[in-house]
Design a protein around this nucleic acid. Sequence first.
DNA 1: ATGATCTGTGACACCGGTGTCATAATGTCA
DNA 2: TGACATTATGACACCGGTGTCACAGATCAT
Lengths: 341, 341
Amino acid sequence: MKNKAKATSFDIAHYAGVSQSTVSRALRNSPLVNDETKRRVHEIAEQLNYKVDKNASNLRTQQSSTLALLLFEDPTTDESQINPFFLSMLGSITRACAKEGYDLLVSFQSSSSDWRADYEDSHRADGIILLGYGDYLDYQARLQELLDQDTKFVCWGATVDNHPDLTVSCDNYGGGQLAAQHLFALNRTDCAFIGDASNHSPEFFARYKGFKDAFEAQGVALNDRKIANAISTEDSGYHATKSLIANNISFDALFAASDLIAIGAIRALLEAGINVPEDVHVVGFDDIPAASYVSPTLTTVQQNTTLAGQMLVKNLLSLIKNEPVESTLLPPSLIVRGSSD
Amino acid sequence: MKNKAKATSFDIAHYAGVSQSTVSRALRNSPLVNDETKRRVHEIAEQLNYKVDKNASNLRTQQSSTLALLLFEDPTTDESQINPFFLSMLGSITRACAKEGYDLLVSFQSSSSDWRADYEDSHRADGIILLGYGDYLDYQARLQELLDQDTKFVCWGATVDNHPDLTVSCDNYGGGQLAAQHLFALNRTDCAFIGDASNHSPEFFARYKGFKDAFEAQGVALNDRKIANAISTEDSGYHATKSLIANNISFDALFAASDLIAIGAIRALLEAGINVPEDVHVVGFDDIPAASYVSPTLTTVQQNTTLAGQMLVKNLLSLIKNEPVESTLLPPSLIVRGSSD
DNA sequence: ATGATCTGTGACACCGGTGTCATAATGTCA
DNA sequence: TGACATTATGACACCGGTGTCACAGATCAT
């Protein structure tokens, strides 16, 4: 096997004394080929360390056994700091792809300028998974463009207008309710919310809405003044909370739209001499690994990333095969830890 | 643009009234083509939303503008918990690839059974980046196999026997020294080490060695009994530290081979009523995001993941182009935080 | 005017597989 | 034994680009 040049199916054909067509069929276990011939071909392929040339194969079959993952980040986010939640998703998506026999192309769309969704057009991937919080410059417009071009794609979280079936997401509204019910049961009803209560970021808004509605269902109204905006970074959560404190806004519980925000919030609270959980209960969202490392450990609404990754891949593959796809809403679960105990 | 079928270069040729050859050349800005012709071809390509078919192009040119990233994980690691340090590396590698105009295929090699390095053989990728701590079943043997097959690859951390030029790594030894010098300066000389002081995991061993040697250079000998083995997880660090405590082994400083281990160690210490940093100073390694979230915040030896990713990609590309490649050792830096302050 | 060089283009083979069709060899049944 | 189905295989076009070669027409030097 010292040969520099990679072996082709013609080489195998030569050694096996059959035609190249037969080799191709044999390697794909076509029932048309005699078992003995198959065995011989496989054996020689093994010896030559032969691997099917994916480019040739893909070119002919017009499909690539590859999915592309586009990860959007908040433009303000630091280069090296990627939201751990999405990294966790990336892990589960990778695994789900592998399980289905697909490869995964990963691409970070750090700024709207280098948005690149031509993986399908160029036949590099059979479909695209879009991952990211919130909305981006021309987000909906771009998704619409993908729809127009008949590109196969699924989104995490964000719903495409009139095409909810292209979305897999966590039940953010229900998650907000879980957080509220938990705090209500502990008699913490004077709540602050850090995140984004406008409809700017659909996920964050849904979390807030569920939270608010669940409290109202118990006859408790949330005070709008106790809301501070933040994007999903520790730093942003820290500053948002600090500004609440600076404005002398009091509360005995705090619901953060993400764990990173919650962690930043806790830092701000502790710095201000406010104890967690004694003075303020804190609940986050996501359950990133760090949630169980920080102290106090963080109570949070967990998203099942493993399942999410599987569903994204599964739905995308269905879409590619033109099978009917159903909208998927994953149930979150509350993980109670030190910050509310 | 309602056409279902994707446009090909023949379509453009037809509309532009030139041959397909000329289209191909024009689109790649060949100097052989008249400027006016180029303009017309580009314009039509734009209108038809034409994208070069990568499979055809790759097949012909025998290269893929794609790199593959194989991420190894400790087999014991939980599915969803990927070492944040490697995720950070993944981020920087992705960016470095994008900058060089390469795509990135990501694959997790969770168990040795599905080791898959045929991305180059099958022409899916031009080269491979191997990422992971420690050694794996048949690790060296497998790398040797890649070498034999003349596969282009670079490794993070682990050195391939007789081929250090294929490695990019952090100066783990120097990092260990930094940690030791820091603790020595604070007069903390009764140190424990949590990690792996055997040569099982080369990186961890180098960190330990540098740490030990730096202390010995100051005339301080480390006590071998104050070493506990751990793999790079929070849990493992927690248990290793707990066992030291259970054996009544005392120390006034602790150096952990990774941040996850350090975070687990701090948890064990605090649980045992040992204060950090008052009773025990703790220093980690990596500087994962969580290092600045935990409390006390973690002093650690930082690895520059951005640079690391760039170097891995750069060296691999050089290798692919058969250019000479130099071994790369990246300087770590000490980040002093609350756990040793 | 004549050969030499340059410019822009088209024809065509080729990359390494896959799918279709034709066909030889063998078996089946009336 | 002839008509027909079945099995196993080869020949060949094809996927959509890229690279090589040939060549027409314009430009230039002698």
